[in-house]
Amino acid sequence: MGSALETLCGQAFGAGQVYMLGVYMQRSWIILSITCIVLLPIYIFATPILKLLGQQDDIANLAGEFTLLLIPQLFSLAINFPTQKFLQAQSKVKVLAWTGLVTLVVHIGLLWLLIYAFGWGTTGAAIAFDISSWGAAVAQVFYVVGWCKDGWHGLSWAAFKDIWAFVRLSLASAVMLCLEVWYMMSIIILAGHLDNAVIAVGSLSICMNINGYELMLFVGINAGISVRVANELGFRHPRAAKYAVYVAVFQSFLIGIFFMVLILATRNYFEIIFTSSKDMQQAVANLAYLLGFTMVLNSVQPVISGVAVGGGWQALVAYINLGCYYIFGLPLGYFLGYVMELGVKGLWGGMIAGTALQTLILCFVLYKTNWNKEVEQTTDRMRKWGGQDANTQENNI
């Protein structure tokens, strides 16, 4: 839901309405905080929910206790994500990088202290996570208030204006991103019901980890192209936005090809990092070709999602994801994996087909996009939500 702010802050910054960035951020704080309250029952009743889903009692009980301790961390996200998007829209990413580095170091220290020195186990892990998460959120807010005078003019009642339109964009953003993440995670659940499930889930988990390492690179490119597209549309530079999109997609595709070749060249060796089981190593090696193709798709797809966020196309992409992933890809994977008895390869192959279809459709959408029209829509959005600087100042608390 926080990525809605990425659209509005990026476009407002490009349009010269920097004074609105703080208002948008506060609006997102309000929406995400309310969302955290809505999500609380899942945290509070995690144990009975997990037991209802068939988890063993000892796992469900421990997970429920751990989840209760993570409630403070949940609310830190309502502050953390919007503040990140506020800073990213202005290309102030160094402070985010330094904050992340310091948080990582502090987090590791807290984990050692609370888990090993104090002997608190998973309780210590949860407390460390709470502290480090809130530390990062407070540090970012401190920087915004102290050093971002153009975008931050204090708390404002204007944050409550047009909040429902902001909620709709936030929900569309959440649906778009959740459909993508849950899609690839669902393959693990399906694999757990195959014959020899331990090997199936284990080999898939190793491949998903490798894919996740590569994906983190493209998550960064996703954020970069999102900000660039939003800024250029706000600047009223349609050709610059179009050029940035094509460069980012082509560059990411080449990087994906490189990683695919690397995986295929080391398909009999890279799994040694994760397991010493010969059976598991062989199972992973058999999936290497699917992993390589997935890495190519996942090099382009996140970048196009970033373009969608920058342009405000979240609702459109959510519908495309729903159709390609859950109406086409997931049933096809189930059919190939269970009905055709192809096992893990069938599951993954069908789901790759869904991702490939989604990527092709989004590439076609990019090709047919009228960037001049996108600039006009951005201008209308900024005119509707931007207001006047003077009026905003009058609404300050």
Rank of each mutant, 00 (worst) to 15 (best):
M1G: 09
G2T: 00
C9L: 07
G16W: 02
G16S: 06
M20S: 11
M25H: 02
L32I: 08
I44H: 08
P48A: 12
P48M: 12
N61W: 04
L62G: 09
L62H: 08
G64D: 10
F75P: 01
A78P: 01
T83I: 10
Q90W: 08
Q90F: 03
L96T: 07
T99V: 15
G100D: 11
H107V: 13
H107R: 07
H107Y: 09
G109C: 05
F118C: 10
I127T: 10
G135A: 03
A136D: 08
A136S: 15
V138D: 04
A139F: 10
V144F: 05
D150P: 00
G151R: 00
H153C: 04
A158P: 02
F166H: 12
V167K: 01
R168H: 14
L169R: 00
V175I: 15
L177Q: 15
C178K: 10
C178V: 15
I187C: 10
I188K: 10
A197W: 03
A197V: 07
M208P: 04
M208Q: 12
M216T: 15
L233T: 05
L233W: 06
Y246F: 14
V249T: 09
G256E: 09
M260N: 13
S276P: 01
S277F: 03
D279G: 15
Q281L: 09
A288I: 07
A288D: 07
Y289S: 15
L291D: 04
G292H: 04
G292T: 06
T294K: 02
P302T: 06
A308Q: 04
V317K: 00
I320W: 03
I327M: 06
I327P: 02
L336M: 13
Y338R: 08
Y338K: 06
V344K: 09
M351Y: 02
I352Q: 02
T355K: 00
C363N: 05
Y367H: 13
N370P: 00
W371D: 01
K373N: 13
E374I: 05
K384E: 13
A390M: 11
E394W: 05
N395G: 11
